[in-house]
Design a protein around this nucleic acid. Sequence first.
DNA 1: TCCCTTTCCGAGTTACATCA
DNA 2: CTGATGTAACTCGGAAAGGG
Length: 212
Amino acid sequence: MTTMMKTQTQQVDDQMVLLSQYYPEIYDQLIPQQGEVMKPRRRRKKNKTDAGISGFKKRKLSDEQVSMLEQNFGDEHKLESERKDRIASELGLDPRQVAVWFQNRRARWKSKKLEEEYAKLKTEHDTTILEKCRLETEVLKLKEQLSEAENKINRLVERSDGLSSTSPSSSFSVEAIEPSLFGGFGMNGFEDGFYLQETSYIHGGLDWIGLI
DNA sequence: TCCCTTTCCGAGTTACATCA
DNA sequence: CTGATGTAACTCGGAAAGGG
């Protein structure tokens, strides 16, 4: 803030040099008479041709001015009247220019913040979607395994039916796995979770099915 | 308390400068 | 030359503060 600082006179000179380089045709009109203070720029009119007529064109702020403004913006985004005047004086700008710069800078800052926030939310959203897909795949896989297990049980039941007709004293009694006891082995009971203890199925748990 | 003026701000727009 | 982009400066409407 110190070594880079120029005096106000130097800065005005810089602006004038720029002006004389880029707009020599109007430079003469802007040079104040000796001892006359530079007046604030006139308000721009909407008419497109007006700039040409009035001779006032948009001027880019110098790198140094921008860097100083950025530095001040970094300290505090809001701009009190006193601070505005001080900055304007330090940079050789109209206080109105400083106010406008801060307004535009706040708008850019907000826009950037929104962009960042959007990117963050999008990343979170994508991660959640990915996890949802993974869980859905897992559900499908488990349902498939369950279906296979049901088929195996049905086959065993059918086989035991055949055995019981010839050997009623079989230790693997039909009643032991009577479908009615399991709710018919349908998905109804499983949709809401495994409500039966694994030992209710067959002695030894579900190991034989290969689920565990 | 109300009205008017001033100042500031955000949002949206315009106009100009610059660059690919 | 032209379209895209960045940005200084503008308009507009609303809020807040101060004074009569």
